[in-house]
Each structure stands twice: as structure tokens, then as C-alpha cells.
């Protein structure tokens, strides 16, 4: 009954940056309720993630872990799908699906859009 965790005790434990429920620093920030259209980059990253999931190459849980592993300043600075593409690349490299060197080689060759 009275064994609830006092908020001041819980707040002493470091919190993961993505775990945002009730976080004081965002309580005074207005919610931007305006529509924001997705662009081609966003849609392509989303589609790639779905395909990787459907083919068993990488799960949504791995995607989330990769996002949660971003440095806090990067997490809050990057747009939603920019976080995703960083997570996808790092997870696929970690799993050996692709190599960092190959990704770098193709990244600068700018194929496609």
C-alpha cells in the first residue's frame, strides 16, 4: 500500500535517454501539433527497415536497441528517420551483414537519390 517508490529515490537513478515518460525537461516544451510531411529519405528508410524485418535480417527490437545506443546529444539532434538509418547501419555492421568499409565506399559513390 504505502510501499510505492518515492519519486525522489527513483529520480536518483540515471535514466536512459529514450525513456521519456514524465521527464521534467520536456514538460515545459510545447508539443508541435502541426503536420510534417515525410520526405523521400524518410519513406525509403522506413521501407528498408520493414524489408529487413520481413526477411529476418534484423528485428524491430534490434532497431530499437541501435537507436537507444546513440549518444544522447545525437538522439535528440537527429530527426526520427536519421536515427533509424544510423541504427540500421550499425546493427548490420555488428552482425556482419555488411562491412563498414564497403558501406563507406558506397556512401561516397552516391548511387540513386
Amino acid at each position: 500500500m504505502s510501499n510505492d517508490v518515492p519519486a525522489d529515490l527513483a529520480d536518483q537513478v540515471p535514466r536512459a535517454m529514450h525513456d521519456l515518460g514524465g521527464v521534467p525537461r520536456f514538460l515545459c516544451e510545447a508539443v508541435d501539433t502541426a503536420p510534417h510531411a515525410l520526405d523521400d529519405f524518410d519513406r525509403e528508410v522506413d521501407a528498408i527497415r520493414q524489408i529487413l524485418g520481413a526477411k529476418g535480417v534484423m528485428s524491430v527490437d534490434e532497431l530499437r536497441r541501435g537507436i537507444e545506443a546513440l549518444p544522447e546529444d545525437v538522439y535528440h539532434r537527429l530527426s526520427y528517420y536519421r536515427r533509424w538509418v544510423r541504427s540500421i547501419a550499425s546493427i548490420l555492421i555488428e552482425k556482419g551483414v555488411i562491412s563498414e568499409a564497403a558501406l563507406r565506399a558506397h556512401a561516397t559513390s552516391r548511387g540513386g537519390r
Binding site: 524489408i51 537527429l78 538509418v85 544510423r86 556512401a107 552516391r110 548511387g111
Partner: peptide, 13 residues
């Protein structure tokens, strides 16, 4: 840049 990362991923996949 994340757009370059996407270019790399697209090509490799």
C-alpha cells in the same frame, strides 16, 4: 551524413 549512410546501405542491400 545520414543521407550518405542511406546511399551506402541501398547499394549494399
Amino acid at each position: 551524413d545520414e543521407r550518405d549512410i542511406l546511399n551506402g546501405l541501398r547499394a549494399l542491400l
